[in-house]
């Protein structure tokens, strides 16, 4: 009896995979091309609602999986059942992944980078009265004023500021913290 077309095709793919397992890059390339269209067809028939991009993603996923487990193909056994078992598994995995991630995602278009409500915007972003800030800095105790001027206005490093002021790094950190705290209080009150 003559072998059917499916059987012939299966044998051909099996032979290509056997050659690929032997390191034949050309045979492997041909096999991957044939597999890609077969997989695309199976994915489309099982998941017709997927977008072309999602189908291609799945095709690539299956090809990578086939590549990883090509050693599990036994050249004495039919090729198509082996391939279809992997395809079905990867399609189910993708469905589970979809359920875990995209099912819980909300697509938003043109989302603002920040909220417009006043309370969500910090003082540094909204405060614009440079004169009041200058006055507030001027009213700080000398140590705190020096710390703010060196570290924030002149952007010196802690080491440089410590050398220039003769204070320790720890003392500068404390002075800066206290200065920012009192500036916040003063400027918030004024607003």
């Amino acid at each position: 009896m003559e072998p059917t077309e499916d059987r012939k095709s299966d044998n051909r793919l099996g032979l290509l995979m056997r050659a690929a397992q032997g390191g034949d890059a050309e045979a492997y390339g041909a096999l991957l091309h044939e597999m890609a269209s077969l997989i695309r067809h199976v994915v489309y028939s099982k998941r017709p609602f997927l977008t072309p991009e999602d189908i291609e993603d799945l095709v690539q996923d299956v090809l990578l999986s086939v590549h990883s487990v090509r050693s599990t193909y036994n050249p004495n056994r039919p090729f198509m059942p082996w391939l279809l078992a992997i395809v079905r598994n990867r399609i189910s995995d993708a469905a589970r992944r979809y359920g875990r991630t995209r099912g819980r995602e909300l697509r938003l278009e043109n989302m603002d980078v920040t909220f417009s409500v006043e309370s969500t915007n910090s003082l540094t972003e909204s405060y614009g009265d440079a004169e009041a800030l200058k006055l507030a800095i001027g009213s700080l105790p000398a140590a705190q004023r020096t710390a703010i001027e060196m570290l924030k206005l002149r952007e010196m490093s802690l080491k440089e500021a410590a050398r220039a002021s003769g204070s320790s790094i720890g003392a500068l950190k404390v002075a800066t913290h206290r200065a920012i705290d009192s500036l916040r209080k003063k400027l918030t009150k004024k607003k």
Binding site: A20, Q21, G22, G23, D24, A25, E26, Y28, G29, L32, L63, L64, H67, R70, S71, T72, Y73, N74, P75
Partner: peptide, 11 residues
């Protein structure tokens, strides 16, 4: 993948 077609021993 085709470039990575090294010899693999069937399991």
């Amino acid at each position: 993948l085709a470039q990575d077609a090294d010899v693999v021993r069937p399991l």
